[in-house]
């Protein structure tokens, strides 16, 4: 499998065009803004709690800073990840480079894997930028590392799922905008699908709740590592990548 050269090429393309820099910068900026406002609020609250000891028991820096931060970051991802993945196949198709790529001695699967891993690596880099924030918190308060680690794992898995969905959407069209809107639409639907679970109720409600991305991400942020959630993301990734492979093969047939 010649995944590595494809991976390197995609990384090079991310970093020779401004996409990677812009997305990473905007991500860091917004995450930083959320962090500082949450952290400022927390500082204020903890100062007040010194005067009122009854409140102090409820103030825990992991719960009141990191958890809301993780959930805010997941919203940013919902908006930004479609932009990271939209180019991956749609642009090859529009510019015609796919004709060369698919006639080199690489399997379609290796092409997809290389592209998927490149987007994942870029995402990991973006996520690494936010390590700064727990770093800051640690300087002022005692942090429970368990929930922070599971929180990051949750974010990573969620992003990995977004990328798989984005890759599939990008394989469906020549148009990057269409790819990105499709990705966003699908992700938003999966995000909010759990909300209607309450009205639906019963077995269907359970199913909707199970499909919801938000539901599964919440556990990680609470510090709960459940294989059910990991399996949920893994299933999603495998399904989306499988569909992307199928769509790439189908495009070959159409010419």
């Amino acid at each position: 499998m010649r995944i590595w050269p494809i991976f390197k090429k995609e990384m090079r393309l991310y970093f020779t065009s401004p996409i990677a820099y812009v997305v990473a910068a905007i991500f860091a900026l917004i995450a930083g803004y959320f962090f500082s406002s949450i952290f400022a609020y927390f500082t204020l609250a903890s100062m007040q709690s010194m005067m009122n000891p009854a409140m102090a028991r409820e103030l825990n820096v992991t719960d009141s800073v990191m958890r809301p931060l993780f959930s805010n970051i997941s919203v940013i991802l919902l908006l930004l990840m479609p932009l990271v993945t939209m180019r991956l196949i749609a642009e090859e198709r529009r510019s015609g480079t796919i004709e060369l790529l698919l006639t080199y001695p690489v399997r379609d699967g290796a092409v997809l894997a290389g592209k998927y891993l490149a987007a994942l690596a870029l995402y990991a880099l973006m996520l690494a930028l936010t390590f700064l924030y727990p770093g800051i918190v640690v300087a002022f308060a005692r942090l429970e590392w368990g929930p922070v680690l599971t929180g990051y794992l949750g974010l990573f898995l969620m992003g990995a799922t977004f990328i798989a969905v984005g890759l599939f959407a990008s394989s469906l069209t020549e148009n990057q905008i269409v790819a990105s809107i499709t990705t966003f639409g699908v992700l938003l639907l999966l995000w909010t699908i759990g909300w209607s679970a309450e009205y639906v109720g019963g077995a269907w409600g359970k199913l909707l709740q199970h499909l919801s991305i938000l539901e599964h991400n919440d556990n990680f942020a609470k510090g709960v590592l459940d294989t059910k959630d990991v399996v949920y993301y893994a299933n999603f990734i495998v399904l989306a990548l499988f569909l992307a492979l199928r769509s790439l093969e189908a495009r070959r047939w159409k010419g």
Binding site: K9, R12, L13, T16, G96, T97, I98, E99, L100
Partner: peptide
Amino acid sequence: NVPLYSDL
């Protein structure tokens, strides 16, 4: 019409 990656 030689499709190549313009950004490389």
